[in-house]
Amino acid sequence: MATTATMHQTKWWSGGKSPFNVEYGKLMMWYFLMSDTFTFGAFLISYGTIRFSQNFWPNPGDVFNTFPFTGEANLPLAFVSLMTFILIMSSVTMVLAVHEGHHGNKKGVVKWLAWTIVGGLAFLSCQAWEWTHMLTGEHPTLINGHIEMIAQTVTHSPWGRHVDQGAILDALKSTSPDVLAKLVYEHNHTMSLAQLTALPHDQLMNMVNISELHIREAGPVAFGGFFFGITGFHGFHVFSGVIVNLIMLIMTNNGVFERRGHYLMIEKAGLYWHFVDLVWVFVFLCFYLI
């Protein structure tokens, strides 16, 4: 091997050695990540194409403004900032695990890999909360001249254009008592929902606090599909990254890499994990920032 390398010292491509100076697995991981970049790129670009073809698109500051345990407080982008921080942090712990691997320090690898897994699970939990909140949080929306309570799903979006007061008054007349009761109940807890629903329609309508009521039309249908599709695909990558890291943790703990003499597998798992962080940079950019 050494003689072959010496013979062809002047040319990387004349055989006898790896022209990339990395082992096969790592090179293939790089190529896989490149192809995955194009997959995510295609998703994000199709989202961009649809956005550019629309006159109206929901403002992320309006859509993503809630934080767990703070009720109805308006905190635009606060929760997603936390998620971003968690992911950057887990990327740092991963690179520290790879660093310990270079020095053959088994204990260090186990420690930092464990923290990376914790970070990944924390991110997934945050995403689960965000999705649940979006899929179940109902907002009053003007649809076909009356108001309905709808959540952000893959087929419906409550984040359309603002509706002016005159149109709201008209819409209330043809809105069902169930929805009117919910609108009243938001600000007025003196009666239960059932009691409110039983009231005469006119009385219920007068109880609705119109000056406090912000109603929107239904938003672009594509918003939900792209949001859940792309963040879901990213979340799936995070999930599989956690599984890969878990396997690496068990293998390290069992001394597999110690016997092998090197921690190259940790480097490859690390590449995948950093890629997940890299994709989030662009998901964060496209859905939350601009």
């Binding site: 990339f20 100076n21 991963m94 950093h274 962080d277 890299l278 940079v281 950019l285 920032l289 601009i290």
Partner: peptide, 27 residues
């Protein structure tokens, strides 16, 4: 500006965390 900053972030992640900057030019 936000897009350019994101590209800068991507550069740091790939170059330093993923060690691509430390690989040889061929790679």
């Amino acid at each position: 500006t936000i897009i350019i900053l994101s590209l800068a972030k991507a550069y740091f992640i790939v170059s330093i965390f993923m060690h691509l900057g430390d690989e040889i030019r061929n790679l």
